[in-house]
Write a protein that binds this DNA or RNA. Structure first.
Lengths: 157, 157
DNA sequence: AGAAATTTGTCCGTATGTATC
DNA sequence: AGATACATACGGACAAATTTC
């Protein structure tokens, strides 16, 4: 029911709710900014997870989720008993972009239905892809395709 | 070493130790095999996380780690309140297909505006792509981009 | 070389929010 | 509106790799 804006700010303890951005993404953005701004130079070790836990007042799992995000983006590298450090060999370091995708079934509206030459209300697959560059949404891609089962593509073992 | 009694076999449940492969990877391999072997056909929903928890006798976090692995590999797709299913796989790309594209400027509606975090009515670039396979429309892709990128690349070293 | 401390890896259980059916 | 299912977050425990003493 679309609750009005709760004036909850981060930095304090949030029980569980994720307003707007989840906590781990906020932390990831903060860490990436530190790297891009030079606070954490390339190759330098980040504070230990236990330290980040204390600083961001988040659980270790949440910190690790944030780190995993940046590791997947190639921004960070982690060695087992050693630590996590800023990847010295990141191409631009700046244009790190993450893609978030999502698929769902939808009923075709008039516009889409006419494109596919099907009846309005026909179930289609909608594939959404949101690309964030430096944390900001830079590209949105929406794909539509028919729900028909594809007998043409067979998996090879 | 010299501790020859590290065996906490317990029969079925492993308390914490990870022998050889971590548990979540073993589970991921098992799930992948089910998909490739056809036990879980493309597009079919996987059992819910709660069900997998019971079947593999693992915690939900571990199940989710396994699923995340396959999702990153493009094997699985997850919808929020719906479920996780085997990725139907590659789009068409089968027989002769033609692509028709068009690009134009549009004003952001409420939905798109919120995604980009801009005001409704902001001018965006819309790129449409219609793919016809054997004459019939099989795929429609709509991309949205900001008209001006904000202070991204092009940094002086 | 060995032992302890540090740090990341894995796993569990629980609670609550949010989206979908 | 209720049930179901995924998402986020917390806290604790132990394992494994590395560093330090």
């Amino acid at each position: 029911m679309t609750l009005s804006k709760t004036s909850a700010r981060y930095g304090e303890q949030v029980p569980t709710p994720h307003y707007g951005q989840p906590r781990y993404r906020t932390i990831a953005d903060e860490l990436r900014q530190r790297i891009e701004s030079g606070v954490i130079p390339p190759g330098a070790l980040l504070p230990a997870e236990s330290a980040l836990t204390a600083e961001f007042r988040a659980s270790r799992g949440t910190i690790r989720q944030a780190i995993a995000l940046l590791r997947a983006a190639g921004v960070l590298v982690t060695d087992h008993g050693r630590g996590t450090y800023a990847n010295p060999g990141s191409p631009v370091g700046d244009s790190a972009s993450e893609v978030e995708t999502r698929e769902r079934h939808i009923a075709a509206n008039a516009e889409i239905a006419s494109l596919f030459a099907v009846e309005v209300g026909t179930v289609l697959i909608e594939h959404r892809s949101i690309t964030r560059t430096n944390g900001a949404v830079s590209l949105v891609v929406v794909k539509y395709r028919l729900l028909q089962l594809q007998r043409d593509c067979l998996r090879v073992p």
